[in-house]
Design a binder for these strands. Structure first.
Lengths: 341, 341
DNA sequence: CTCGGCGCTGCAAGCGCTTACATCGGAGGG
DNA sequence: CCCTCCGATGTAAGCGCTTGCAGCGCCGAG
């Protein structure tokens, strides 16, 4: 039923080989022939069969996008950028979720299932186990990690330790000394480095000032607003609650701020909040945050993986560190003498 | 390099045909043979070549997910659910963006490009042109639309007129008479029915009460918080601003609420807000909203498309209307006598 | 004892492309 | 004017799998 390359060849009076070459723009076809073939093909509504093409050439024109979440803002935004860039380059994006790492609903990610399906893989800050990572490596396909430093593969990310330090130093500069952190559990996710790095940056900034935060000031939380709220409630119940909060993401910060407001605290008079991301809503909400250019990371990731697929080995081990920027808004202010609502 | 079906066949001492059948669980293989083959295959790390399999069988085990946005909450959440459901059924999700319809950065969506790539298509409330829709139809593949009523195809959506009516009636019941709407431009997107349907519901509810809203009370906006904010600023600048606002999505409502707060209005004392979606943040923010079960829509969409692919024609023309639910929270209250900040 | 039928397996023909290699005609050099 | 070389095209061999059809024992009925 569908028109095949044969049909085009016959209609154009050439061989299938020539049609194939003409349609792909190979140099060994005369200009006249190419135009004729192109015309016939489009008249007939010919579309090359991807499976046949892949089978014969070994190329799939598809890139796998492996991600733990889709609904979360950061991931959705990166995926959007990656997909757009791939599409503009004639590549398809195969979306592969790896389940919910935090809820334990992890069906282990089988990298082998991508063998032959894709020409390259972009992995989004995935908390992959060592075994899963090995699987990815054994694909021996170009692979790029976004948001995590993985040795031996291309990487696009921000400096999460620096992010934590920047956020904390901002609070310190405002006079805060009791600074808490809501973020990832350092024990939990070995290969999911962002949360623990941000925490490390927070700790390092505090210690540089000779401050050793009480253990209670580091509250583990998932990266959701609801989690941020719960964590904040715990902080507020402390005998000596913090005056500044560094949340590991803007969504967490939103949740924390809601909890604080609900309990009657004023922002930033009583409590200051810093997040990370520069979420769509952060500007409107007046949330001070360490902004990371998310769309750019996605676009760059796609460009790099395409270059690697294209055989450009020069960037094969590139580790790109994207700069972040502190956006000071109205959720942070000088520490006040009196606290408590 | 990679192990082929041949290798497995040889190692197991059977023909490739038997391997193929055994691995796919076809009935015409003895239990002993199946187990032996399965074992050998896994020992060898054999993975079937999708392109070869597709070429030979005509099945791709892939579903196309066509969407105008990925970063927006609703879309990301639906995609997440669709992908998960597909994956659990052994299908892959091919993500296809259709560009930014609102900015005009639309590269027309070419449905033909999916021919032979996928076994079915899920289209998310896509503002496709008639031509693009025809393209999809000509694929003669199972197709399902989420969030839009498209005749002749399967559909999963909510009743957007009813949503608009419900939200508006809630405000009316609280005594509001000056009720504005921030939402889609009815002129703009013919096939993107949700925005205009919600608007229609709003209008219908008002008219049932004998209220004819001034034209200024229907403010067109994109579905972002920033857009909601801009729209709200315009409403507040009106000589006679509304006391109740029905925003076409929670994100829009957030933006509108920020604008109102910034201008010194109190919520819900001076102004009441109703959104649509039940966004992750809405509960925390206390936003009254018409909740729609987004994940369920995605899961159901995947189930239906898989059923259709599986040859279950009984649901081929099914139009599923998912019920919504008004969640009354703290952003709405009785209309107050005095207004203005 | 013979034969039809059934359960299981193998044979081999594609599926629709890509590509190494062969071919062919003409241009340009000797 | 012949030979070489090169650009443009054709030939045909796969790519790795699926599947219609054939084959082969074996069992039970006749």
């Amino acid at each position: 039923m569908p028109v095949r390359i044969q049909d085009v060849a016959r209609a154009a009076g050439v061989s299938t080989a020539t049609v194939s070459r003409a349609l792909r723009g190979l140099p060994s076809v005369s200009e006249d022939t190419r135009q004729a073939v192109t015309r016939v093909a489009s008249d007939l509504g010919y579309v090359v069969s991807r499976s046949a093409s892949s089978l014969a050439s070994g190329r799939t024109l598809t890139v796998g996008v492996v991600t733990p979440y889709i609904g979360r803002w950061f991931f959705a935004t990166v995926i959007e950028a990656v997909e757009a860039e791939l599409r503009h380059s004639g590549y398809d994006a195969l979306l592969v979720g790896v389940g919910e790492p935090l809820t334990g609903d992890v069906l282990p990610f089988r990298a082998e299932s991508l063998r032959g399906r894709v020409d390259g893989v972009v992995v989004l800050t995935a908390p992959l186990s060592g075994q899963e990572l090995d699987g990815v490596r054994q694909l021996s396909l170009p692979t790029l990690f976004v948001g995590a430093a993985v040795p031996g593969a291309m990487t696009v990310r921000i400096d999460d330790v620096d992010v934590g330090r920047t956020a904390t130093e901002h609070l310190l500069a405002l006079g805060h000394r009791r600074i808490a952190h809501i973020g990832g559990d350092p024990e939990q996710l070995l290969n999911f480095s962002a949360p623990s790095d941000r925490r490390a940056g927070w700790l390092s900034a505090l210690r540089s000032e000779g401050i050793e935060p009480p253990p209670d000031y580091a509250v583990a939380s998932d990266f959701t607003a609801a989690g941020g709220k719960r964590a904040m409630e715990r902080l507020l119940a402390l005998p000596s609650p913090p005056t500044g909060i560094f949340a590991a993401s803007d969504e967490v910060a939103f949740g924390a701020m809601f909890a604080a407001r609900e309990a009657g605290w004023r922002i930033p008079t009583d409590l200051s909040f810093v997040g990370v991301d520069d979420h769509d809503l952060s500007g409107l909400a007046g949330l001070t945050t360490v902004a990371q250019p998310v769309t750019e990371q996605g676009t760059l990731a796609a460009e790099l993986i395409l270059a690697a697929i294209g055989g450009d080995l020069s960037r094969r081990h590139e580790h790109v560190l994207i700069p972040t920027r502190l956006m000071v808004r109205s959720s942070t202010g000088p520490v006040s003498v009196a606290a408590a609502p």
